[in-house]
Computed example of a mutant assay.
Amino acid sequence: MEITGRIVKDASVFKVKENREVVNFSIAVNDSYKPKGSTETKKIVTYIDCSYWLSAGLAQWLRKGTLVQLFGRIGLNVYIGNDARAHGSLTFHTSDIKILVFAQAENPKAVPAPKQQKESDDPDDLPF
């Protein structure tokens, strides 16, 4: 299965038993449709939790805003909660990640403008 979306929060790495690591992240998938008999397009966003087990080093590239194409399978987690009711969640178990567009830096390091020297009529006020 293949899905494409933007990462909504920087990926995190968790250590699990037997010294294994998993990279967890979530993506937002945008979609739109036009209801029957309507001229207005409806936009919907689906958030999908994802996990990647093959290399924790990839987490450094999975930053908020990065557009990724994922290949893998959907897994279902079912459990009985404290309220004695059944609960479930879906996780996309990623086997291959292709980064389509890297995220923009939130605070790019700007090169400071050179300081302007005040013009002075006094020759003794020169910076050299």
Rank of each mutant, 00 (worst) to 15 (best):
I3R: 01
N107T: 09
L62M: 14
T4E: 14
G88M: 07
V45T: 15
Q60V: 12
R6I: 00
K36S: 08
T41A: 01
V13S: 04
D124I: 07
Y33R: 03
I99Y: 00
G75L: 13
G75N: 14
I74Y: 05
V111Y: 12
V68S: 03
N24D: 07
Q60K: 12
D96F: 08
D83Q: 10
L58S: 03
Y33A: 03
A28H: 02
K17H: 14
L67A: 07
I80W: 01
E106Y: 06
I48S: 03
E2R: 11
L58V: 08
K118D: 08
I3D: 04
F14W: 07
R63Q: 15
V8C: 12
S12I: 14
T66Q: 05
A113K: 11
I48T: 00
D121P: 03
L90E: 12
V22F: 01
R63V: 11
A11P: 00
N30M: 06
Y79T: 04
N24M: 05
T91A: 06
R63I: 14
K9T: 10
S12F: 09
A56W: 12
I80C: 08
K42L: 07
G65W: 04
A84Q: 15
R20Q: 08
D125K: 09
M1P: 12
V22W: 01
L100R: 15
Q60F: 10
T91W: 01
F14V: 07
A110W: 02
P127G: 05
D83H: 09
F102V: 06
Q117V: 10
P127F: 05
Q104W: 02
P112S: 07
W53A: 05
K17N: 06
K118F: 15
T46H: 04
A59D: 13
G72F: 02
D49H: 15
G88N: 11
I97H: 04
